[in-house]
């Protein structure tokens, strides 16, 4: 039976209005609500569904970061993950480092599927799954909107610019999730209580013996350029006149 490893990144909640710090050193994260990256929540939901239909025996949630990430792992356990692993570090983790860490855990856990969100909504990098697949020398199926497991392979429907692409990959493989794969379940109170008893292993990142220091320097941050305030027109006539004025109607 298959084992599934799911990555859960702790990020600023998607409803929070992001503000850049006045000194440009980053965005304001003090006191803002933190959540599981929505794409990762979809990944966990999919792992649980694969297990529930009998195609997997165990779902392991993993996070990388400060001890605060235990909150998101507990939520993952309450959703239904069997156990959790926190790779604890205070270091800023770039996607290549995250992939390196995940590879170390793969060596130990030998999962058949690694499910990750296609991107995190904080850095919007969209890299970790692809990098992990490269380092692991295994297939990648990114931007999944449908996953079917059968006889050691996965058929994955991918949301691409041209439409929906279907690929078939040998397992083990890395699959990254898109928004329409599923709708994650809500966590019920009894599940939160039960989750407190599930195992959560904490491993110090230094013990993994790999270099996870950042390669890049974030020199400065700024708010995006604002568009100038526009005009309100009263009716379709005025709209057409305004468009003609800008020479936008061929």
């Amino acid at each position: 039976m298959d084992k599934i490893l799911v990555g859960l990144k702790r990020v600023v909640d998607y409803n929070v209005r992001i503000r850049v710090k006045s000194d440009g050193s980053g965005v304001v994260t003090d006191g803002v609500k933190m959540s599981i990256n929505p794409f990762d929540e979809i990944a966990l939901e999919e792992a649980l569904r694969i297990k529930e239909r009998g195609d997997a025996s165990e779902v392991i949630a993993i996070s990388i970061g400060s001890s605060d990430c235990q909150q998101q792992l507990r939520t993952g356990l309450a959703m239904g993950a069997d156990r959790a692993i926190l790779i604890e570090t205070s270091q800023e983790i770039e996607p290549l480092a995250a992939a390196g860490i995940l590879l170390k855990i793969i060596d130990k856990e030998q999962p058949d599927i690694v499910l990750l969100g296609k991107q995190a909504i904080d850095d919007d990098n969209n890299q970790t799954g692809q990098m992990l697949a490269a380092l692991w020398e295994r297939p990648q199926a990114t931007f999944a909107s449908k996953i079917e497991i059968s006889e050691g392979t996965a058929s994955v429907t991918r949301e691409v610019d041209a439409g929906l692409e279907v690929i078939n990959v040998d397992l083990p493989a890395v699959i990254t999730t898109d928004l329409r794969l599923n709708e994650p379940r809500y966590v019920k109170l009894p599940d939160i209580m039960k989750a407190k008893k599930k195992p959560l292993e904490v491993i110090n990142a230094d013990e993994l013996g790999i270099d996870i220091s950042p390669q890049f320097t974030a020199v400065s941050h700024e708010a995006p350029a604002e568009r100038e305030k526009g005009i309100i027109v009263d009716d379709v006539d005025a709209l057409i006149a305004a468009l003609k004025d800008k020479d936008l109607l061929g």
């Binding site: 770039e94 996607p95 290549l96 992939a99 919007d124 990098n125 969209n126 890299q127 970790t128 799954g129 692809q130 990098m131 992990l132 697949a133 490269a134 380092l135 990648q140 990114t142 931007f143 991918r158 949301e159 691409v160 610019d161 390669q215 890049f216």
Partner: peptide, 20 residues
């Protein structure tokens, strides 16, 4: 989606990070 899928795999094989 073409470049997003491919490029991180290239970067990781080369052992470098990627600017997205």
């Amino acid at each position: 989606t073409f470049g997003k899928d491919l490029t991180p795999r290239v970067a990781a094989l080369m052992g470098v990070g990627q600017v997205s």
